[in-house]
Amino acid sequence: MNIFKQLLGTGLTALLVVALFSTTAEAQERGSDEARVSPNATVSQTIGTTEVTLTYGRPSVNDRTIFDGLVPFGQVWRTGANESTAITFSSDVMIEGETVEAGTYSLYSVPGEDEWTIIINSKLSWGTQYDQSADVLRVNVEPEMGREVEQFMIYFENVSENSAECVLHWDTTKVPFTIEV
C-alpha cells in the first residue's frame, strides 16, 4: 500500500491514466476489439538517418481478381484496407525526385495496367475519404510482375545509405517507388 501511495505522489498515476485512455481510444477508433479480416501491419526502414514508417491494412486475395477487379484501374485506392495507409518521414525526403517535408501523411495510389500514380496526401482518414485538394505529391511509376502473395504487403528493397525502394505488392503486382534522403 505504501508503494501505491508513493506512486500517487510521483505523477506516475497521471501517466498510467493517460496510457489507459490512449489504449481505450485506439480500441474505440478502430471500432471493435475483434480481430480484423485485413490485419494491420507496420514496416519501418532507416534511410541514412531518416526513419520511414508505414502502417496499413493487409487485405487478402481470397480467390478474387484484384487489379482491374476489386481495385479498379484509374480510380484512387486507399492502398490497403480499413484506415488510409499512413506514411511517416522523420526528416525531409524525395519521392521519385520530388521533395516531401518531414511528417505523417496518407499514401494513396491510382492503379493502372502500365502506370500507377503514387499519392502523398496530408489528410489521414478512414477508408476512401480521399480529398484530392490535400495532395502533397503525385508521381507516376511502372508496376512490375512479382511472385504471387495472398495478403497485400509493403516492404523495402535496394536499401542504400541514401535511398530505398518502397514496394507495394499484392497478388502478382509489385509497384516500387524510390525514396531518397
Rank of each mutant, 00 (worst) to 15 (best):
V139G: 00
K123G: 11
P111D: 03
F156A: 07
N140W: 00
E150C: 09
I154L: 13
E144F: 09
V110T: 04
G146S: 10
A134P: 07
M145D: 15
E142I: 10
E150I: 10
Y108V: 07
G112Q: 06
I154H: 02
W116L: 01
G146P: 07
F156E: 06
N121R: 04
S122E: 13
Y130A: 09
V141G: 03
I118R: 05
Y130F: 13
R138A: 06
A134Q: 12
S106R: 01
L107N: 03
V149R: 11
S122F: 06
F156D: 06
F156H: 11
W126N: 08
M153S: 14
G146F: 03
D131H: 13
D135K: 04
E157S: 14
Q132G: 15
S106T: 06
D131M: 14
N140E: 12
R138S: 04
D135G: 07
T104A: 03
T99M: 07
E157H: 14
Q129C: 11
M153Q: 15
L137E: 01
A134G: 09
E148P: 10
Q151H: 15
F156P: 01
T128I: 14
T104R: 05
E115N: 10
V100Y: 00
S109V: 02
V136W: 00
V136M: 01
T117Q: 14
V149L: 11
I154E: 08
A102W: 03
Y130G: 09
T128R: 13
E113S: 08
E148T: 13
F152V: 08
G103C: 04
F156M: 08
Q132Y: 11
D135H: 07
G146Y: 00
Q132V: 15
E115D: 12
I118A: 03
D131W: 10
K123V: 11
S109E: 03
E101L: 06
G127H: 08
P143W: 05
D135C: 05
T104S: 09
K123D: 11
Q129I: 14
L107K: 05
T117L: 08
E142M: 11
T99N: 05
T117N: 10
G112K: 07
F152S: 01
K123L: 14
Y108N: 06
Y105P: 00
E150V: 13
E150Y: 13
Y130H: 11
I120P: 00
Y105A: 00
E115Y: 09
T128C: 13
P111T: 00
S106I: 07
V110N: 05
